[in-house]
């Protein structure tokens, strides 16, 4: 599938390849932080995005966790949304029509409690117009069964990757959890399982307490930490994984500006996802694209691809 004729055709070449998926620029929106894109239509030009990754979709609708679901922490936030979503069938019938018309690759984040659920979601997404890729969530920390087990055990991670690869008719990106002893081992396992790319990191499990009430800030007690607070951890993990695997790496974690995005690319990321920053600045992704154009122009880069893995360590 090709998404050419980018709006930014006048400027430097920002296009990148994620395996067989060509993006007009390396800026994607992270799952769970951008709704189904329509929410942001008034606030930015959605057509400029490298790709949209939609809110995680399960086989059946999920109501999510009781409130409070979010809590602010220093330079970051905790969330325990609990994977609330409309389910794959309603996603296809209610959300995909709009998304398909954006002229932007749509990557569907999927999650399941069993291999069978992952397979069934893929089967239902096959052939749906506009779906350009699947991102496999094996790492959500909020659901007690399923998700977290797949993400923390290399064999399980490889098996869910294989299952999705066998069913999906589009490229498969696997989203990795940082809540593991060795993320490189998991990355290698999903590469062996056939992943076309890996995205990292998902949120770090954290906790906050309200001293006045002596209660946890989240009803779920623990939740996922995101935002600028986690950027150094994410950058380190991207660097380690990019050195260890040969599939493209997509950097996620506290990216708010073009500078942040370029640091991840230097560390080896072929593209990035913008997450929590969308809440703070609804046009953060577009600002990052503008910043990349400015950087590439100033630095006289023929292509932004020349930055990928360009970290100087000596």
């Amino acid at each position: 599938m090709e998404y050419l004729a980018p709006k930014d055709e006048q400027g430097p070449d920002l296009s990148v390849n994620i395996g067989s998926l060509e993006l007009k620029n390396p800026v994607m929106t992270a799952s769970g932080t951008f709704g189904y894109a329509r929410e942001f239509a008034d606030l930015m030009d959605l057509g400029r995005l490298g790709a949209v990754i939609v809110k995680g979709i399960s086989l059946h609708p999920r109501e999510g966790n009781p409130p409070p679901r979010i809590a602010e922490t220093s330079c970051g936030m905790l969330n325990a949304i609990g994977l609330q979503n409309v389910g794959v069938d309603r996603f296809i019938s209610e959300k995909m029509g709009y998304l398909a018309k954006l002229g932007v690759p749509v990557i569907v984040n999927i999650l399941g409690d069993s291999l069978g659920e992952y397979e069934e979601i893929c089967a239902r997404l096959n052939g749906v117009p506009g779906v350009a890729g699947i991102e496999v969530n094996i790492s959500c920390p909020n659901v007690k069964k399923g998700g977290v087990a797949f993400g923390t055990d290399p064999l399980m991670a490889a098996s869910v990757t294989k299952a999705v690869k066998n069913r999906a008719d589009v490229p498969v990106m696997v989203k990795l959890s940082p809540n593991v002893t060795d993320i490189v081992a998991i990355a290698r396992a999903v590469e062996d399982g056939g992943a076309d790319s890996v995205s990292l990191i998902n949120t770090l499990i954290g906790m906050a307490i309200d001293l006045k009430t002596r209660k946890p800030a989240l009803a779920n007690i623990i939740g996922g930490l995101s935002g600028p607070a986690i950027k150094p951890v994410a950058l380190r993990m991207c660097y380690q994984v990019a050195r260890a695997v040969s599939v493209p790496v997509i950097g996620i974690g506290g990216i708010e500006t073009a500078t942040d995005a370029l640091e991840f690319m230097l560390a080896g990321a072929s593209a990035v996802q913008v997450g929590t920053a969308n809440f703070v600045n609804p046009r953060a992704s577009e600002d990052i694209i503008d910043g990349l154009i400015e950087y590439a122009t100033t630095e006289k880069l023929v292509s932004i691809r020349s930055i990928i893995g360009g970290l100087i360590t000596e």
Partner: peptide
């Protein structure tokens, strides 16, 4: 409610 995005993206203000 506590909110992160205010626009239906984060689903935090349930």
């Amino acid at each position: 409610s506590v909110m992160a995005c205010g626009m239906g993206a984060c689903l935090g203000c349930s």
